[in-house]
Design a protein around this nucleic acid. Structure first.
Ligand SMILES: [Zn+2]
Length: 224
DNA sequence: CGTTTTTGACCCGCGC
DNA sequence: GCGCGGGTCAAAAACG
C-alpha cells in the first residue's frame, strides 16, 4: 500500500541537477486486488448463509423466494429481509473500503508533498557570484514574494518566484555571510516555458525588412 | 488598471 | 506549551 520509496537525501543543496522520477501513487493491480478480495468475501458469505438457510427451511433459494412471494409469505419476507440486510452490509463494506482507499491515496499524496518539500522539490541549484548588485538579469521574470533576515548575517535574503503563470520555479538571493562581495543565488524547480529573452529564428525570418528575407526572395525570383 | 514590491502576519517543524 | 528560524501569504502601496 505504501508506494513511497523513502530516500531522504541529507544534502539540502544539490550542485548537480537531480531528477527524481516519482512512482505512481497506486497501481491498478492493487486496486483490482482490493475490489476482488472484497467481492470474493461477499460471495463466500452469501453462499454460507444461503446454505444454512436452505437447511432450516425448504429447498427454496434466495432468488426463488424473491421472485414468487405468493404462497409462503412469512418465509419469503424473512428471506427478503435477510437479503436486504446483506445488501446493506455489502454496501456499507464497499463504502467503508472506498473511504479507506481514498483516504490512503490522499495520505500518500500528502506524505509525498511533505517529502518533496523537505527535499527541495525535484532539484535545486546554487550559484555563488561575485557581484556588487544582487539584481542580476538571468532572462526570466521574477516576482519578489518575501524577505527574511538570515541568522548570523546582517544581510537579508530575498525570495523570488517566476512570474510566468503555472511555472512554480523559485529562487532566493542572499549575500554571502562571510564575504559580502559574493551573492548566492539558489534556483529551485524547472521552468515549464522558454526564457522570455529567447529570440526565435522564425520571428527574425518573418520580418519582411530583414536582410536575409530580402536576399532569399531576390534569389528565388532570379532563379525562376 | 495590471503588475510588482513591501512588509507584517502567519504557518510549520524542531528543540527545549 | 513556547520560542526560534526558515518559508510563504496577502493586503496595501508603489510603479508604469
Ligand atoms: Zn518559469
Amino acid at each position: 500500500m505504501d508506494c513511497l520509496d523513502e530516500d531522504p537525501n541529507p544534502n539540502p543543496i544539490h550542485f548537480v541537477e537531480k531528477y527524481i522520477v516519482d512512482p505512481p501513487p497506486m497501481d491498478f493491480d492493487e486496486l483490482s486486488n482490493y475490489l476482488m478480495l472484497d467481492e470474493y468475501d461477499f460471495s463466500r458469505d452469501h453462499q454460507d448463509s444461503s446454505s444454512s438457510q436452505s437447511v432450516g427451511s425448504s429447498s427454496q433459494n434466495f432468488a426463488g423466494g424473491a421472485g414468487s412471494g405468493g404462497s409462503n409469505g412469512g418465509a419469503a419476507s424473512r428471506n427478503n429481509m435477510q437479503v436486504m440486510i446483506y445488501i446493506y452490509i455489502y454496501q456499507y463494506l464497499i463504502s467503508l473500503l472506498l473511504f479507506f482507499f481514498i483516504w490512503d491515496i490522499r495520505n500518500v499524496e500528502v506524505r509525498r508533498n511533505k517529502l518533496n518539500k523537505v527535499e527541495g522539490g525535484n532539484h535545486r541549484v546554487a550559484f555563488r557570484t561575485k557581484s556588487e548588485l544582487e539584481v542580476m538579469d538571468d532572462g526570466f521574470k521574477w516576482r519578489k514574494y518575501g524577505k527574511k533576515t538570515v541568522k548570523n548575517s546582517p544581510n537579508p535574503r530575498n525570495y523570488y518566484k517566476c512570474s510566468n503563470g503555472g511555472c512554480n520555479v523559485k529562487k532566493r538571493v542572499e549575500r554571502d555571510r562571510d564575504d559580502a562581495s559574493y551573492v548566492i543565488t539558489t534556483y529551485e524547480g524547472v521552468h515549464n516555458h522558454e526564457s522570455p529573452s529567447v529570440v526565435y529564428y522564425n520571428q527574425m525570418h518573418a520580418d519582411p525588412n530583414n536582410i536575409w528575407t530580402l536576399r532569399a526572395s531576390s534569389q528565388s525570383s532570379a532563379s525562376s
